[in-house]
Computed example of a mutant assay.
Amino acid sequence: MLAKLTSKNQLTLPKSITQNLGSVEYFEVTVQNGQIILTPVRIQRADAVRAKLASLNLNEEDIANAVTWARQP
């Protein structure tokens, strides 16, 4: 399957490929042995992170303590 690189450095992925991935907006792009590797990345929105923290009963003080602990030498 071919994909054409435009003069603006844009690449359109074939629909048959993207349909297999689901709803992906972002890709991690790497080059390995002369090949371009696209890895789907699902970005979590801040609201999802806040909801997860709330479900774990974590508050701002808990987060601050965790960051302090993680930054210890």
Rank of each mutant, 00 (worst) to 15 (best):
L2Y: 15
E61S: 11
L56T: 08
I17S: 14
Q19I: 12
T6F: 04
I63Q: 01
T30W: 08
T12C: 14
R45W: 10
R42E: 12
G34N: 07
E25Y: 02
L11K: 06
V31L: 01
E28I: 12
L38P: 04
E61Q: 13
A54E: 09
I17L: 13
I17G: 06
E25N: 14
N33Q: 15
A48C: 08
Q32T: 14
N57R: 06
A46I: 10
N59A: 02
E61F: 04
A46D: 04
F27M: 09
T68N: 12
P40Y: 03
S7E: 13
L13M: 06
V41L: 14
L56D: 05
A3G: 11
V31N: 05
V67W: 04
K52V: 02
I37Y: 02
T6E: 02
I36L: 08
T30R: 15
N65E: 12
N9V: 03
S16H: 12
S55L: 02
F27L: 09
L21W: 14
D62L: 04
F27T: 12
S55M: 10
L21P: 04
S16K: 14
E61W: 00
S55H: 07
P14I: 05
D62K: 05
A54K: 08
L58G: 03
A48I: 04
A66C: 07
E25S: 13
S55C: 03
L13D: 06
S7G: 12
N57S: 11
A54R: 14
Q44V: 12
L13E: 05
Q35P: 00
A51F: 10
Q44D: 03
E28Y: 10
K52W: 13
V41F: 11
R42Q: 10
T68V: 14
S16C: 09
I63S: 00
I63V: 15
L13N: 06
Q19A: 15
Q35H: 06
N57E: 10
T68I: 14
L53T: 00
L38S: 04
V24Q: 00
R45F: 13
L53A: 07
I17W: 14
V49E: 01
A54P: 07
L11E: 06
R45M: 07
V41C: 11
N65D: 14
L56Y: 04
A54Y: 02
E61M: 07
A46M: 13
V29I: 15
N9H: 13
T68P: 02
G22D: 09
K52T: 05
A66Y: 06
P40F: 04
A51S: 15
L11G: 03
R42H: 14
A64W: 03
F27W: 04
L2A: 12
Y26N: 12
E25I: 04
N59W: 03
L53K: 03
S55I: 01
S7Q: 08
T30Y: 02
I63L: 14
L53P: 00
K8D: 05
Q10G: 11
K52D: 05
L13Y: 00
G22Y: 09
V41D: 06
E28W: 09
I43C: 00
T18R: 09
S16A: 15
R50V: 07
L5S: 01
K52Q: 13
T39K: 15
A3R: 09
V41H: 05
A3T: 11
A64M: 12
V49H: 07
N57K: 14
P40E: 06
Q44L: 09
I17T: 10
L11Y: 02
Q32M: 08
A66S: 00
